[in-house]
Amino acid sequence: MSHSPATPRRRPGEQILGPLGLAAAPLSPDDASTHTFPDGGRWRTEIPSVEGPEALDTVLREAERLAVPVHRVSQGSGVWMLTDDEIAEMVKAAAEHSVELCLFTGPRGTWDIGASTRTDSRGGGPRARGHAAVAGCVEDAVRATELGVKCLLVADEGVLWTLHRARTAGLLPADTTLKVSALIGPVNPAAYAVHERLGADSVNVPSDLTLDQLTEIRRVSAAPMDMYVEAPDDLGGYVRMYEVAELIRRGAPLYLKFGLAKAPALYPSGAHLREAVLSTARERVRRGRLVLDLLARHGADEAMSPPGSRLPGALRRFPSDG
């Protein structure tokens, strides 16, 4: 399954390409991120699209069978698609396995009645349209945290800032973490730094950012980065497994998200999609095993955060007393 930690670090194919005179340009120490998680780790793992208690149980069982460490699971349909009992069941199972549970908050523009999201411009995209949508996201956040959820997924900058201010004011638990969705992921260092200052504890960047662009982000922000190693089709369907070692080197601290291309859309989820939810949950864990094996073969599987790690460390914020 996994090679010895003593495997010499190498780039893919270099043992053949070097002697043939086809070696890649040498890596520069200046390219490497100098940041880590507070536990000293440079990367963690995340299984996305875990749509309910049965899917979570499937992920946890498969992760144990395949020896895939899971730091976080995230759900995409939203808090509103789960009953109190279902949330409580997920909270309990995640806690028993020392896994952070992250649930999506509230309404999003792409499901709203506003017509602009159906145009070529996509309008405001998934962002919360109007006060009522912001209020719905806040309602979801309150309900989820009261049931024990410690991580909230957001797809709107205003909602992010509101929840961060609520956390700072003691209206939400202080150890609540806020994760920016891939649906609004920033694509430049200035925007990434703004998300950090608005309260983001991890920021999902689009999976088509280049390695140099990741380095540019890391020059201005230490906020943990989330990135699909394999992206769903609606986010591009990119598969970047062979770049994982370099993604970590450039993007640390980094959550490796094991998504799935060529899979059916699951949001909003329900019993009508049960088989797809469970089968794709199992395959996402398997994709994780493939990535971990690849890292081991390249001698790049060191510096993973210890299981159970979840907090991001000290980050820079805008003053929240205004």
Rank of each mutant, 00 (worst) to 15 (best):
D233V: 09
P232I: 01
T210V: 12
V203Y: 08
R219V: 14
D212H: 15
P206E: 07
I217Y: 02
A200K: 00
A193D: 15
D233S: 12
Y192C: 04
Y228W: 10
A231G: 10
D208W: 14
V229L: 05
S221A: 14
D226C: 11
D208L: 13
V220M: 07
V220E: 07
V229M: 04
D201L: 00
A191H: 12
A200G: 02
D226Y: 09
D234S: 15
A223M: 04
V220R: 08
S202L: 04
T215C: 12
L211R: 06
T215G: 08
S207P: 03
D208A: 11
D201P: 05
Y192S: 08
A231E: 06
D233R: 12
L211V: 09
Y228C: 05
D212K: 13
E196F: 02
L235W: 06
R197V: 09
L198P: 00
A193V: 09
T210L: 07
S207T: 13
D212E: 14
A191G: 14
L235H: 13
V220G: 02
L214V: 09
A222D: 05
S207A: 14
D208F: 12
P206M: 14
A200P: 00
A200E: 03
S202T: 05
D233W: 12
S221F: 02
A191Y: 11
T210P: 10
D212L: 14
L214Y: 07
S207D: 07
L198D: 00
V203W: 08
L198M: 08
V229W: 05
L211G: 13
D208N: 15
R218F: 06
L214M: 11
H195W: 05
P206T: 08
A193E: 13
H195P: 00
N204F: 12
A193C: 10
L198E: 03
L211C: 13
P232L: 02
A191T: 09
A223W: 01
L211I: 13
I217G: 01
R219C: 10
A193I: 06
D212P: 01
D226T: 08
D226L: 03
A223Q: 02
S207G: 11
H195C: 09
N204A: 15
V205H: 02
L198N: 03
V205I: 11
A223T: 01
A200V: 01
Y228P: 00
A191D: 15
D208E: 15
D234T: 14
L198I: 07
T215K: 07
R197I: 10
A231I: 06
D201T: 04
A223P: 02
Y192R: 06
I217L: 11
P232N: 03
V229P: 07
P224V: 01
V205R: 03
N204K: 01
